[in-house]
Every structure is written in C-alpha cells, then in structure tokens.
Design a protein around this nucleic acid. Structure first.
Lengths: 348, 348
DNA sequence: GTTAGCACTCGATGCGATCGAGTGCTAACA
DNA sequence: TGTTAGCACTCGATCGCATCGAGTGCTAAC
C-alpha cells in the first residue's frame, strides 16, 4: 500500500499533468507542496512510485506522467469528496433542467451540447430507452392509395414512425382495420414484448381477415424489422471536434480513429449500452476500454433514470489525461438533474 | 481568351494536382502530353497562364498549382461531356435506390453515407422540405393526466411530434377537443401556411371554448414554436472525418474550423438551403463560399426534387483540389436517382 | 514559334553543436 | 534512518549550416 506522502505526490502529479499535458518534474512538486520537502526527496518517492507502476517516464531525462494504473488509483482513492465543480456550474446545470422541455430527445441533445461546452471534451448522450414503457397508441395514417404512415406512441412519449407501401393484394382499408385491431389488442403491452405479441396477433388476424397471405407477410416483415431497429434509441453527440483541442490529438493520425469511431453511432451506442447495466458511475481509463480506438482515451459514463429505473447514459470522452476531479462530480450532477426532470415529467 | 493549347495544359495541371496534391512541373506535363512539346515550351505557357491568373506558384522554384480562377475555368469550360464515373459506380447508385425505403429520412442518411464512401469527401444531405405538402393529420395522444403527445403527419409522410404538458386550468379533455377541431379545419392546408392558419383557428376556438385564456396562450406558444423549428428539415452528414484524409487538412488547425462548422447543423443547413433555389447543380470553389470556414474548401451541391419541385440538396465538401471531373457527374446521377425514387414513392 | 542549355531559387533533408530541464547517485547531515 | 545538497549524466528540442534537387526564367540558337 502507498504511504500518505506517496499518495499526495501521486495526486499532485496527476493534477499538474492534467493541466499542463507535460511531464511533471520533482522541482515542480517540491515547490507546490507545503510540507517543505526538497526535490531530491520527491525524486526518491517518484522513483518508488514508478517501480510500483503508478508513474511512467517518457524518456530518461523527462519528468513523470501518470500511468493508466496511476489514474486508476487517483480515481479510486484520491478523489473522495473532492468536488471541484463551481457553484456557478451547478446553478447552470439547474437552469438547464428547469426549462420546459418539448421532448425527451431534445433534452438529450441539449445535455450533450451543454456538457461538451462545459468540459471541452466530447459528450455522448444515449437517448432514453425505457424498458417498462408500454404501447399507448398504434395508428395508420393513409397518404395515398398505396402508401401510409404507421405511427407508434409509447407511454414515455416517444414516437416511432415508418412509411409503408401497401403490397399488391392488400387494400388500404384492410390494413386500416388490421391496425385498429392491433391497437386495441396491443395497447398497454410492454414495448420489449411488442415484437412477439405483434407477431402473434398479426398472424392471427391475417389468417382470419386477409386473402393474400403471402404479400401480407412481407408487410409484416417491414413492420417487425422497424420495431427492432428503431427501439434502440439514439446517440447524441456534443463537441466531437473538441477532441482536436487536446494536445495528445494534435496529430491527425491520432485523432482520426477516435473521430471515425464517434461517427459510427451504432458502435458508440453499443459501447455505452454496456455501461448502463453496471454501476451508476463508471470510469474506463485507456486500455480498460474494450474498443480499440479508445485505447488512448478515457470514457466516463453516468446512467440516468426515470422513476429509479435506468433508462439512458451520459458519457464523456477525452484523453486519458482527463480532469477527473472536475468531470466526475459534474457528470454526477448532470445525471441526477436529468433523472429528476424526466421523472417529474413522465411519472405522473 | 485562352488558346486550345493553354486550355489543354491547364486541364492537365488540374488533373495532375487533383491526384498528387503537389505542384505540377513543366517536365511532368511535357512527358504526359503527346503533342511532343518540350518542357521549355510548357514553361512559357505556364508563365502566361500564371500571368492571366489561372495558375499559382507556391514559391519560386516550385511547380504550378491551379488558382481558384483556374479551377473555375476548369469546371466551367473543360469538363463538358467528361464523365469519369465508372459503369460500376452507376450501377451501385441504381441499386442503392432500388431498395425499398422505410422513410424519406432514412434514404437521406443512406445517401450521405454512400456518397462519402464513394468519394472520400464529406457528404451532406439536406432532408426533404416539401413546400407543397399539406397537413394530413393532427392528433393528441394522452400519456397521463397532464402530459400528451401532439402528432402531425404531412402528405409527404413526415411526422412531427412534440410532448406537451398541460397548463393548469386546461383539462386534457378540453385540449383533445381543441385538437380535433383543429384537425378537421387544418387538414389539407399547405404546411407553410399552417402556422398562420393555426393561430387564427386556435384563438378562435379558445375564445369560444376555454375558460382560462392566459394559460392556453402559453400552450399555443409551445406548439407554434415547435412548428417553426421542426419544419426546417434535417441535415445528414456522411464521412465528416474524411476531411482529415486530405493532405491539405493534415494540420489540425486547418481541419478544426471546417469540422467544427460541420457540427453546427443549423449553419450547414443555411448554407445549403441557399443552393436549393439556385441552379440544379452548383460548384462553389474556395473563396466563392460565403462561409469563412469553407474558404479552403469546395462545395458542390445538387438539388433533388419530387415531381419536379426541388425539395432538398445533396452536397459534397472537400478541399479546393477536388476531383471535379468525377464528382460532378456522380452528384448528378445521385440527385437524379434520388428524385426518381422519391417521385415514384410519393406522387401517387 | 520551339527548344537546348544554364544559372539560379528555395524548400527539404541531414548533421552537429548547444542548451537545459530533469534525473539518479553519492555523500553528508539531523 | 530519513532527508538533502551536489554533481555528473541523459536526451529531447532548437538552431545554424551545408547539401541536394526539382523546377524555374532567361538567353541564344534552331
């Protein structure tokens, strides 16, 4: 285990490196500390910390930088009660969430932008995916003789829609009555059960009412596929180009993989969805990320919830040299505020 | 006016520079041309072309690169009938548009991705904004006692939705009947007239049916604001990070402004909306762009239409050194294909 | 009008000297 | 035993300088 002094030095090295992005030397620490220790003493301690794996040396005559393990220790043991979020920031968060909201998704986008502006990192918000939402309403709105829009409203106020073209052999009228029956039968069904229930009901109805079974199956296919793909929720990015502000990504070849990865929303979603089921707040440093492109980044995630049930994730991506002390409590406040807002709004 | 030989040389310089991204020397041209001209002759012509403003010299002992004016001449006069799109590419475009589509917006996103993959530039597709669409359907779906979702379906199959919370003093029931009346009165109205018509009708109904006028105006506000913001259409990006592949943007400080600009969807939309009303196909080279961040880029736009009416824009953004010869006809094919698909789908 | 020849320009590349921040080690000190 | 001053050493960064070569402009000859 580390001595108190070692912890203090590690902490100071991380704090300094986070700000300067340059290796921290023993003199710097010696001058900043008020324990009156000379640079030589610090050097000895630093050598020990390096041997233990908490520090690294870019090259022989450079200062030290924290290793991945060093950051991990810092986050796990040196941050308790360390809240470097200013009162002003907290009140900005509050005011962000006191605005009247139009829809869940708009709030998600707003949050991503807000967070990225505040931190100069890249923010990712995973749109709410409420598992215990039920189907409120299913409707078909005809556009013309062979085209219609199918609408689905959930109890959490999300709206899914898809334009469908009628196959030959099925009239709009037949389809409308089918949807009406489905609406009556499926309303109140949990969303994640919709697919299987819909399959049952549709095949049931089809065999009863429809003449052209083959074609109808095709339409059924469209709708079911749609249910699968759209329910995944959306990814909202904020400040993707903030990545380029960080000195460690000033080289295009370093930045490109990360930015390209961020463009693949589906992959981003997958990476964050994992965090949802885990702890309320999670920090993944460098190589701790499964995703190869994020090996030089840290990903901090916080889940937000409605009525106590986790429904989405707020994430922040930056270099491993992240300002954890500021950013972690910030994310905590943000997820808490978002949860409260959504809960107030959707739990009647 | 330029002589035939000058045009030929200009054309070869552009073609070479587009591929290599490096200044083109007289020897290179001399070897490639089959007219049997020596490097010295080419040099003389190049000096003339520079004096005329079509070429530039990065420094004294370097080859020449096309000036903005040079690109302009190339695009305007040297590209006629020059189609460098392969048959394979054309068939890929066709197959892209033969898939069954779920909704307009999905096609827009697909097109952006496809185009950026094909060209290694950044593609932007401006979602369809159909001016002569009418309102099909307006509905209110209640979520709980004080929250509801307002749905709006247009004749082109677009769905707008917004969650609204009932102000104190207005019951859900009152609201429902108001929406029903509105639906009956507004169905068939042209979308861009919706706002004013809705204002008329709502105030009319309000004074007739509702007790608490003040609060209702607030709700009205929500809805009207929503109509204004959501109808703008959306921007779909493809391959924003492709920008980083171009040698002229290998320096982060060059790339950052462009990427940041691309993140501001609203600004992108504004820039492209302008192109919509203009020509069918438009090329803006470097400083010809109004947007400061695009002064080192070229923006090529093509409008697509439904039933002959322009509804959206496909754009391609790259360095001024763009492969115009390939990209311009490509955009032409793409916008044509998209127009045909949408027309077939939405014009009954 | 075209071309060969040639001096000239100027960025790119490579090399060596210098600089300085920071280290590790040793010996002395409390 | 822990701390510190002193000192030699390391190594990236920076600068100056020589070299190289692609490409030019000009002149004179064809």
């Amino acid at each position: 285990m580390l001595t108190d002094r070692q912890m203090m030095i590690l902490r100071m090295i991380v704090d300094n490196y986070v700000l300067s992005a340059e290796p921290v030397g023993s003199r710097t620490i010696s001058k900043q500390t008020d324990l009156g220790l000379s640079a030589a003493t610090i050097r000895n301690e630093m050598a020990d910390l390096e041997e233990l794996g908490y520090l690294e040396q870019p090259h022989t005559s450079a200062g030290r930088i924290p290793s991945q393990m060093g950051y991990r220790f810092y986050v796990d043991h040196l941050l308790m009660g360390d809240t470097r979020v200013s009162g002003q920031e907290i009140s900005r968060i509050k005011s962000l969430f006191t605005e009247r909201i139009g829809e869940m998704e708009r709030v998600a986008q707003q949050t991503a932008l807000f967070l990225s502006n505040l931190t100069q990192y890249t923010a990712v918000v995973l749109g709410p995916q409420v598992y215990d939402t039920t189907l409120k309403n299913l409707q078909l709105v005809a556009l013309n003789d062979h085209t219609a829009v199918l609408l689905m409203v959930t109890s959490s106020g999300q709206v899914y829609n898809r334009t469908v073209s009628m196959p030959e052999g099925i009239s709009l009228h037949e389809m409308e009555s089918l949807v009406q029956v489905l609406n009556a039968r499926l309303a109140g069904t949990l969303m994640y059960r919709i697919r299987s229930r819909a399959l049952e009901e549709i095949t049931h109805e089809l065999t009863r009412h429809m003449r052209d079974y083959e074609e109808a199956v095709h339409l059924l296919d469209q709708v079911v596929t749609w249910l699968e793909t759209d329910q995944e929720g959306k990814v909202y990015l904020g400040g993707a180009t903030n990545m380029l502000l960080q000195p460690e990504f000033r080289d295009v070849h370093k930045a490109q993989p990360v930015l390209t990865w961020l463009e693949r929303h589906h992959d981003v979603m997958e990476a964050l969805r994992g965090a949802e089921s885990a702890l309320q707040l999670q920090v993944r440093i460098g190589g701790e990320n499964d995703v190869q492109s994020l090996h030089d980044c840290s990903l901090i995630t916080a889940t937000y919830s409605v009525g106590g049930l986790p429904v989405g994730v707020i994430g922040l991506i930056g270099p491993t040299r992240m300002d954890y002390a500021r950013v972690i409590p910030l994310l905590g406040h943000l997820s808490k505020g978002l949860s409260e807002l959504l809960t107030k709004f959707y739990v009647s």
